[in-house]
Design a protein around this nucleic acid. Structure first.
Length: 834
RNA sequence: GCGGACGUGGUGGAACUGGUAGACACGCUGGCCUUAGGAGCCAGUGGGCUUACGCCCUUGAGGGUUCGAGUCCCUCCGUCCGCACCA
C-alpha cells in the first residue's frame, strides 16, 4: 500500500476556503421561524489589541473560544462569534513618536496580520461584524455614549493630581513612573493639578458588588472585584475645629473606639491643610512637608517599613463623644483618596496610629479590654481585637465593643454628630488621556457658554491627522490648531475643542454591544439586535482583566440600562479566564528569546495540531508550559487518525448507506457482538466523556478520550466490520471537530461524505454505556484484595457472596470474624474483619 | 500584613459528588520493520521485596474524621497570584 502522509498544509486552506466562500459562520439578526431566545448563543473572546503579530496567548484564547462556539452550534444554537480590534492605544503612539509612522498605518498592518492568522487558524468568526475601535464608524458611538453619560451627570470634569514630567512636558501614566522618575528621561516626576474627565463609577459601587452574586464567574475574579470595590461599614463622625469654625467629618470602621481618639490626622493633599496653618508659625514646616510628600512616589510613600512622619498643624478639633480637644496633624499615612482624607487617630487600637503616636510622643489610651496581640507593648497595646469597653463613658463601659459600636452610632445620630455610613475603596474612573491615538472627547470650551457637549448629530468628532506626535505639555492634539479652533454649538461663537482623548478602556467597555448590530449607521445598536444576542453567554479572556475591563464593562451596562438604552444589567453571564502559556517555566519574551510563534508552529505542523496541543497541555484555566515534544505527540495522534481514516475510506469504498450510525446505537446496537460491540461502546463512552468535557472546559481530558477511541479503533482494525471502523473513526472526527476543525471535516467527509459541522453533536446512547458485567472491587479492611466480574443487575447479597468467594479475599479473611460489610453496587464490597 | 489559588511518577497531567491513585500524552528501555532514521508498529515503564501467586510503601510534612481520604477538617512547610498605611 502506498505511503500516506497527513498534510495539513493541503487540508487546512481547502476547508478555510469553503468556510470563507460560503460565509459559514455568519449569523443574521433575523430570528428564524419559531426561534426561541434560548436558541441563540453569544460566545465571545476578549478583543485583541493589535500590536505586531498574534502570540501564543491569542492562540489559546481563540482555541478555547472556538471550541465552545462550535459546541454551542452543534448542540442546536445559532451562535454569534464575532471579531474586532482594540486598536487605539499607547504602544502604537510611542512607535509613531519613534518612527513617524502614523499609528493608523502601523495598526492597520498589525490588524492585517491578525486577520491572516485568525483565518489560518480556522477560527469560526462571523467576519461580517468585524470592527476596530479606532474607526470613526465605531468611535462615533463611543462619543455618543460619553455624551449620554455626561447628560446623566455620570461624566464630569474636575481638577485632579496627575504625574507630570517637566522634561518631556507630558503627563505620565502611573506605569511610566519608575521610582519617582520618568521612565524615558529619568527626570524627577512632579505632581500637577489638571482638569480631568471622570466617570462616576462610584455611584454604582453597591450594585457592582451585589450583582456579582448572580453571574457565573470564577470565584477568584469575583473576589478580586469585591476587594477592589472595598466596601466597609462604619460611621461618619464630625469633629469640629472651633478656632476656624469648620466641621471635619471622618470615616471610621471603629466608632466603638471613639473615646480612645487622642489626635486627628489629615492627608497632605487635603485642601484645608494649608488654609489651617496660613499665617501661623507652623506654616513653613507644613508647606515643606506637604511639598516633600507630594513629590514622593507612591511606592516610597506606601512602603510599610517606612517610619511614620508628619507635622503638627497647631490646631485642635473637638472629639464629639467627650468634648476633648485633640491636636491636628498632617501625615502622609493618611490618604486623600479614601474616606474624607482625614482620620481620627486611636493609637490604643490601631497599629498605624500607634506607630505615629510613639514617634511623636502622643498619648495612647486603652478603651477596649482584651488579651494583647503579638508585638504589643507592656500595656498590651495596640489591641485590635474585640472586648468590653473601658474608660469610655458609663453608658458604654462594660458593653461588648460590637454592641457598643451600634450604641455609639445611634447616640451620634441622635445628637447630630454622626451617622452610620458605608465607604468604598473604589474611586471614580479618570478617563482623560493627554494622548493622540485615542477617541476624542466630544466637548468644546466656549468663552461665553463654558463647557458645551458636541451635539449628537455632529458626531463623530474626527481624530485629525497631525505631524508631530510628541506630547508637549498637553495632548499632541493641542497642536492641531485648525481642529482645536471651532465654533460653539450653543452660541456659534469661538470655542476650543477638548484636546484630551479617552482611556482605551472606554472603547472596550461596550464593543460587545456593537457586534450585535455592527453595521447600524443610525444608532449604536437596535433594541431588537441586543434582545437577540445579549447578554454574552460565554466570555473568555485573561485574568489580567479581572478588575479593570470587566468592572468598566459592567459599569457601562448598568449606567446604559438606567438611561433606558439596555434591558439587562450584566454583560457577561459566564466568564472563563484562561491561564498563561510559558516556555521553560518563564513568561515568553523577546529578551529571553523563548517566544514560540504561532505562525511558525502553524506553518510547520498545521493549525489543528497547534490548537489541539494548546488545549491538551492541561486545564485551560491554568498556566501551562509549552513543550515541542508534547506538541509532536499531538501531531502524531492527528496523523494516525487521518491515516487510519484514509485507509478505512479506501477499504469501505464509497459512502455508507444513509443513517448508518443507527446500527451502532439504540435497538440497532443490540445486534452487535464481539469487537464491533466493544468499539461501539467505546465510541459512546467517548461521546459521553467529550460532551462532559465541553461543559466543564476540560478539553484536555476530552481530547484524551478521543485518543483512547482512536487507540481502540487502531487496535481492533483488522477484526472489525468496516462500518464499525467507519463509525468509530467518524465519531472520533465528530468529537474532535471543536478542536481540530480542518482535519475533522476532512476525515468526516472521507468516511461519511458529509460536512461534520452540519451534523448535530453525537448523543451517547445510555444502553451502549451500560454493560451487563463490571469489575467488582473486593476489599478487606479497606484494602484492595481482588477483583471479580459481577452482573450489573446483581443485588447487594449477590455482590457480597461474589466478594466472599474471591480467592484472594478468602486468603485475607483467614477465619477472622466479619464485623461489618459495606456494599456499594456498581463499585465495590468492603469487608471489615477483626 | 490581608485575601485567593495550588502542591500527585523522570515530565505535562487524570481521578465529576470520599470508593481500583497515576487515564491520556511526553520521555526513557527493549523489540519488529528499514540501506538508514529524528518515519511507522509492538511491548515495558511509581518505589521496594518476591522465581512466581503475591506483599509492603507511595498524592508537600504531621495529626484527625471515616469501613474507606489525593479528595473532608486542623497545624505546619513550600510555590504562584491579587491587594497593600483603605482608617
Amino acid at each position: 500500500m502506498a505511503e500516506r502522509h497527513y498534510d495539513p498544509s493541503e487540508i487546512e486552506p481547502r476547508w478555510q476556503q469553503v468556510w470563507a466562500d460560503e460565509h459559514t459562520w455568519e449569523v443574521s439578526n433575523q430570528p428564524l421561524e419559531g426561534e426561541t431566545s434560548d436558541a441563540t448563543s453569544y460566545v465571545l473572546e476578549m478583543l485583541p489589541y493589535p500590536s505586531g503579530e498574534p502570540h501564543i496567548g491569542h492562540l489559546k484564547k481563540y482555541a478555547v473560544g472556538d471550541a465552545i462556539a462550535h459546541f454551542h452550534r452543534r448542540t442546536g444554537h445559532r451562535v454569534l462569534h464575532p471579531m474586532g480590534y482594540d486598536a487605539f492605544g499607547l504602544p502604537a503612539e510611542n512607535h509613531a513618536i519613534k518612527t513617524g509612522v502614523h499609528p493608523r498605518d502601523s495598526t492597520a498592518e498589525s490588524i492585517a496580520s491578525f486577520q491572516r492568522q485568525f483565518r489560518s487558524w480556522g477560527i469560526s468568526i462571523d467576519w461580517s461584524r468585524e470592527l476596530g475601535t479606532h474607526e470613526p464608524s465605531y468611535y462615533r458611538w463611543t462619543q455618543w455614549i460619553f455624551l449620554q453619560l455626561y447628560e446623566a451627570g455620570l461624566a464630569y470634569r474636575r481638577e485632579a493630581a496627575v504625574k507630570w514630567c517637566p522634561n518631556d512636558q507630558t503627563v505620565l501614566a502611573n506605569e511610566q513612573v519608575v521610582d519617582g522618575c520618568c521612565e524615558r528621561c529619568g527626570a524627577v516626576v512632579e505632581v500637577k493639578q489638571l482638569e480631568q474627565w471622570f466617570l462616576r463609577i462610584t455611584d454604582y459601587a453597591e450594585r457592582l458588588l451585589s450583582d456579582l452574586d448572580g453571574i457565573d464567574w470564577p470565584e477568584h475574579v469575583k473576589t478580586m472585584q469585591r476587594n477592589w470595590i472595598g466596601r466597609s461599614e462604619g460611621a461618619e463622625v464630625t469633629f469640629h475645629c472651633e478656632e476656624l469654625g469648620i466641621d471635619y467629618p471622618v470615616f471610621t470602621t471603629r466608632p466603638d473606639t471613639l473615646f480612645g481618639a487622642t489626635f486627628f490626622v489629615m492627608a497632605p493633599e487635603h485642601p484645608d491643610v494649608l488654609r489651617l496653618v496660613e499665617g501661623t508659625e507652623q506654616e513653613q514646616a507644613v508647606r515643606d512637608y506637604v511639598n516633600q510628600t507630594l513629590t514622593e512616589s507612591g511606592e516610597e510613600r506606601g512602603s510599610l517599613e517606612k517610619q511614620k512622619t508628619g507635622v503638627p498643624l497647631g490646631r485642635y478639633v473637638v472629639n464629639p463623644v467627650n468634648g476633648e480637644r485633640i491636636p491636628m496633624y498632617v501625615a502622609d499615612y493618611v490618604l486623600m483618596e479614601y474616606g474624607t482624607g482625614a482620620i481620627m487617630a486611636v493609637p490604643g487600637h490601631d497599629e498605624r496610629d500607634y506607630a505615629f503616636a510613639r514617634a511623636y510622643g502622643l498619648p495612647i489610651r486603652r478603651v477596649i479590654e482584651g488579651v494583647p496581640d503579638q508585638g504589643a507593648d507592656a500595656e498590651g497595646l495596640p489591641y485590635v481585637g474585640d472586648g468590653p469597653l473601658v474608660g469610655s463613658h458609663p453608658d458604654f463601659d462594660g458593653m461588648g465593643n460590637r454592641e457598643a459600636l451600634r450604641a455609639i452610632v445611634q447616640w451620634l445620630d441622635r445628637e447630630g454628630k454622626g451617622h452610620a455610613s458605608v465607604n468604598y475603596r473604589l474611586r471614580d474612573w479618570l478617563v482623560s488621556r493627554q494622548r493622540y491615538w485615542g477617541c476624542p472627547i466630544p466637548m468644546v470650551y466656549c468663552d461665553s457658554c463654558g463647557v458645551v457637549p458636541v451635539p449628537a448629530e455632529q458626531l463623530p468628532v474626527i481624530l485629525p491627522d497631525i505631524e508631530d506626535y510628541a506630547p508637549r505639555g498637553r495632548s499632541p492634539l493641542a497642536g492641531a490648531e485648525d481642529w482645536v479652533n471651532t465654533e460653539c454649538p450653543a452660541c456659534g461663537g469661538k470655542a476650543r475643542r477638548e484636546t484630551d482623548t479617552m482611556d482605551t478602556f472606554v472603547d472596550s467597555s461596550w464593543y460587545f454591544l456593537r457586534y450585535c448590530d455592527a453595521r447600524n449607521e443610525e444608532a449604536a445598536w437596535s433594541a431588537q439586535a441586543l434582545a437577540m444576542w445579549m447578554p454574552v453567554n460565554q466570555y473568555i479572556g485573561g485574568v489580567e482583566h479581572a478588575i479593570l475591563h470587566l468592572m468598566y464593562a459592567r459599569f457601562f451596562c448598568k449606567a446604559l440600562a438606567d438611561l433606558g438604552h439596555l434591558e439587562f444589567q450584566e454583560p457577561f453571564s459566564a466568564l472563563f479566564t484562561q491561564g498563561m502559556v510559558t516556555k521553560d517555566g518563564a513568561k515568553m519574551s523577546k529578551s529571553k528569546g523563548n517566544v514560540v510563534s504561532p505562525a511558525s508552529i502553524v506553518e510547520r505542523y498545521g493549525a489543528d495540531t497547534a490548537r489541539c496541543y494548546i488545549l491538551f497541555i492541561g486545564p485551560p484555566d491554568q498556566d501551562a508550559d509549552w513543550s515541542d515534544e508534547g506538541m509532536e505527540g499531538v501531531h502524531r495522534f492527528l496523523a494516525r487518525l487521518w491515516r487510519l481514516a484514509a485507509e478505512t475510506a479506501e477499504r469501505a469504498d464509497g459512502k455508507p448507506e444513509p443513517a448508518f450510525e443507527e446500527r451502532f446505537a439504540g435497538p440497532g446496537g443490540a445486534a452487535l457482538e464481539g469487537d464491533d460491540l466493544e468499539l461501539a461502546r467505546k465510541a459512546h463512552w467517548a461521546i459521553e466523556k467529550v460532551s462532559e468535557g465541553m461543559r466543564r472546559f476540560a478539553f484536555n481530558t476530552a481530547i484524551a478520550a478521543v485518543m483512547e477511541l482512536l487507540n481502540e479503533c487502531s487496535r481492533m482494525r483488522d477484526s472489525l466490520d468496516v462500518d464499525s471502523l467507519r463509525f468509530g473513526l467518524a465519531t472520533a472526527a465528530s468529537l474532535l471537530f471543536p478542536f481540530a476543525p480542518h482535519l475533522s471535516s476532512e476525515v468526516y467527509e472521507l468516511l461519511v461524505g458529509e460536512r461534520v459541522w452540519e451534523r448535530p453533536w453525537p448523543q451517547a446512547d445510555p444502553d451502549m454505556l451500560q454493560r451487563e458485567e463490571y469489575e467488582l472491587v473486593c476489599q478487606v479492611n479497606g484494602k484492595l484484595r481482588d477483583r471479580v466480574q459481577a452482573p450489573s443487575d446483581a443485588d447487594e447479597e449477590q455482590l457480597k457472596a461474589l466478594c466472599l468467594a474471591a480467592p484472594n479475599v478468602q486468603a485475607h479473611l483467614g477465619g477472622h470474624e466479619i464485623v461489618k460489610e459495606i456494599v456499594v453496587p456498581g463499585r465495590l464490597v468492603n469487608l471489615v474483619v477483626r
